[in-house]
Computed example of a mutant assay.
Amino acid sequence: MKRRTLLATAAAGFGLSLGGGALAAGMDHVKACFVYVGPIGDGGWTYQHDQGRLAVIEKFGDKVDATTYQESVPEGADAERVLTQMALSGSNIIFTTSFGYMDATNAVAAKFPDVKFEHATGFKRDSANVSTYNARFYEGRAVEGLIAGRMTKSNKIGYIGSFPIPEVIMGINSYYVNARKVNPNAELTVVWAYTWFDPAKEADAAKAMIEQGVDVIASHTDSTAPLAEAAKTNGAVIGFGQASDMAVPEYMPTPRVTSIIDNWGPYYVERVGALLDGSYQQADIWAGIKGGEVLIGEITEAVPAEVKAEAEALRDAIGAGSYHPFTGPLKKQDGSDWLAEGETPDDGTLLGMDFYVEGIKGDIPK
């Protein structure tokens, strides 16, 4: 998949694959709207997208109206209704910020060809006015996995999955592969919460892992509930901030020892800016540590200095392109060959990932 930078302002590293023609002329004013799967106070995924919205307001001032957003929109018919209302309200660009909005986004976009639609983490671009954007979360999972493998005392590490889609499976595999590289005795427990944001379910998942002896927990859900459960163990269990830094005093220096931060602001600023200056084109982006879309939060003093240095070196190697979190030899869970010695997967393989790597126990839900 070819990816290149759209504008000079994208030199921060957002890879963009472009299609269609640019607008003939810019706009004097842009109305940008945002659809969120959770509340902006979730402390994680939606909070971080809303920080991106606020970055747009700060950057462009009265050239942009980015005050319209709707929280906790269910993925399904409700999303299509909300999107239709936003399009009818005079929106120029609408950002839909969850995988489950994909079909609704494309359905409404077909009815409003003059409105630009930007869908996070999806892959369908059925109309010329639909773009997609994503982050290489699996790169951050590799750093978490290294820390988990080094710091576990029980050799039992855990991962709370939201839904069994490639994005999440990718993260589980990266976490496990890179934990095992530094600790071949590490065993992984996966608990599926079947939610993006439900603090009670997330807490139950963390609690179940802790009862099984897991002492390092990563998650692909949106609340701080897993960290709250870990905090009850008086330092026996550590975890990671997810989507946002989650660097709040009650969780530092432990259980939150570092975090994966989704940095959406530069992308939102660039896309709205492209509407204003007339350079907007349909795009498909997938950026990561190199581009600054995936950040690793502060590694606290709860992590030994040598492990911190190792984790930062891994982060830097991924960013420089000298290391890929999936580097062979690697096999699939069923023992079949996947990657040969030194081989790395292409993006298409990653984006269609529907299998566990060798060593992970349990089945992926269908």
Results as ranks from 00 to 15, higher is better:
residue 137 F to H: 07
residue 73 V to R: 02
residue 245 D to F: 05
residue 70 Q to L: 12
residue 152 T to N: 09
residue 234 N to E: 15
residue 299 I to Y: 05
residue 11 A to I: 11
residue 92 N to H: 15
residue 61 G to H: 13
residue 83 L to Y: 00
residue 25 A to Q: 12
residue 154 S to A: 07
residue 148 A to P: 11
residue 102 M to T: 10
residue 319 G to T: 12
residue 71 E to D: 09
residue 234 N to K: 15
residue 143 V to H: 03
residue 180 R to K: 15
residue 117 F to C: 07
residue 315 R to D: 02
residue 79 A to W: 00
residue 161 G to E: 10
residue 123 F to K: 10
residue 1 M to I: 07
residue 241 G to D: 00
residue 312 E to T: 06
residue 13 G to S: 06
residue 280 Y to F: 15
residue 150 R to Y: 01
residue 250 E to Q: 15
residue 259 S to Y: 01
residue 292 G to F: 06
residue 241 G to R: 02
residue 271 R to A: 10
residue 257 V to A: 07
residue 46 T to K: 05
residue 20 G to M: 01
residue 67 T to L: 09
residue 9 T to Y: 06
residue 14 F to A: 08
residue 187 E to Q: 14
residue 36 Y to V: 05
residue 229 E to W: 05
residue 268 Y to P: 05
residue 6 L to E: 05
residue 87 A to D: 12
residue 267 Y to F: 13
residue 343 E to K: 12
residue 243 A to T: 08
residue 313 A to D: 04
residue 207 K to D: 15
residue 193 A to L: 05
residue 281 Q to Y: 00
residue 359 G to W: 14
residue 211 E to N: 14
residue 106 N to I: 03
residue 193 A to D: 04
residue 210 I to A: 05
residue 265 G to N: 07
residue 174 S to W: 07
residue 176 Y to V: 07
residue 121 T to W: 12
residue 149 G to T: 11
residue 46 T to R: 04
residue 287 A to H: 02
residue 78 D to V: 04
residue 48 Q to D: 01
residue 347 D to N: 10
